[in-house]
């Protein structure tokens, strides 16, 4: 399988009055054709910024991609002109955003918001694009699609709106869809529906998917490969199985332990990760997770651990990944 998207040493920074925020600090990963890749991490770890960087949607000022490469199907994304990147956005790489409540324009009809992409990218006429919009709404499981075209976002529930967002993302048959916390704002029952729908459609249409989430449960069920991010860096990378069964970074382990699970005794307490994520304007010399890490040793505060292989296709950035592998798992 060939990689359709390769991100190499991507660095995105925000220049604020409080200092330079290294929101994304040298991440490298790739996405293969038709594959689902997850990016997992706490709020503010740079996962959304890394996604927005792919489509060059970082508001500038204050933000900018300052280094690295993004290659998509032979295109050097960071070197494209504004007109060229617009041909990629929505046409070849589409996005689904976190907040379906605010991500749809409240004063335009659902139909208009669907057809404008079709008209713009595919040059469809009014009738053809309306017909396609109806088809798309049907595809994402919205009942009575013809009538919905004339409705406004506030007529729809949150789950329905997210379906509309997905329909919008699918409309031009892109090769890649980036879903930034697509289910965070939704009810739990709806979350599963939306994720099933996305997985279904991506498998059926062969669309690659990047799912950004803070929920490792989502990852386990829907992703092929996982990138765990902390403080702007990828600190562990591997297949979903590897991450789930052999977490090799204390942070990944912490994330797993902080999720309630049905297969644990009911009395078992949740084990949260203590402390707060670090201030990205003032990172110390060592591992960014060290102040919160219960396995930290002196070296952790002095040198940043590099990503090193744990097993085939599984890397982790922890000085103690080898000698702590077993202990960490026992601790869970």
């Amino acid at each position: 399988m060939a990689a359709i998207l390769e991100i190499e040493n991507l660095q995105t920074q925000f220049f604020t009055s409080a200092g330079t925020v290294r929101a994304v600090d040298g991440i490298t990963y790739s996405v293969n054709h038709g594959e689902t890749v997850a990016i997992v991490g706490e709020s503010g770890c740079g996962k959304s910024v890394s996604a927005l960087s792919i489509l060059r949607l970082i508001p500038d000022p204050p933000g900018r991609v300052v280094g690295g490469h993004i290659r998509f199907m032979g295109l050097d994304i960071l070197a494209l002109s504004d007109a060229e990147i617009r041909k990629v956005r929505g046409r070849r790489i589409a996005m689904v955003f976190q907040e379906p409540m605010t991500s749809l324009n409240p004063v335009l009809t659902i139909g208009r918001q669907l057809t404008e992409t079709l008209e713009h990218h595919l040059g469809m006429g009014r009738e053809a694009s309306n017909a396609r919009a109806v088809e798309l709404l049907g595809m994402v499981g919205i009942s009575d699609p013809q009538r919905r075209l004339a409705q406004y976002p506030h007529h729809l529930s949150g789950g329905m709106r997210q379906r509309v967002m997905i329909a919008m993302a699918l409309s031009c048959e892109p090769e890649l869809i980036i879903a930034d916390e697509p289910t965070t704002a939704l009810d739990v029952t709806i979350q599963a529906q939306i994720l099933e729908l996305m997985r279904d459609l991506s498998k059926r249409l062969g669309v690659a998917l990047i799912i950004i989430t803070h929920n490792l449960g989502v990852v386990a069920r829907y992703a092929d490969r996982v990138n765990v991010m902390y403080a702007g860096k990828i600190i562990e990378q591997g297949s979903a199985l590897q991450i789930y069964h052999q977490p090799s970074h204390p942070y990944t382990l912490g994330l797993l332990n902080s999720v309630p699970r049905l297969d644990r005794p009911r009395q078992a307490k949740l084990d949260p990760i203590e402390g707060q994520p670090p201030d990205l304007t003032r990172l110390g010399a060592g591992c960014a997770f060290q102040p919160r890490c219960r396995f930290a040793v002196t070296r952790c505060a002095q040198e940043i651990p590099p990503l090193e292989t744990v097993s085939e296709g599984h890397v982790s950035a922890c000085w103690r990944r080898d000698d702590l592998g077993e202990k960490m798992r026992d601790a869970s």
Partner: peptide, 17 residues
């Protein structure tokens, strides 16, 4: 700065539109 403007940008629409 609204989310729906970002959505519109992500669709690849022209700035004028």
């Amino acid at each position: 700065r609204e989310d729906y403007v970002r959505t519109a940008r992500a669709k690849g629409l022209l700035e004028r539109v």
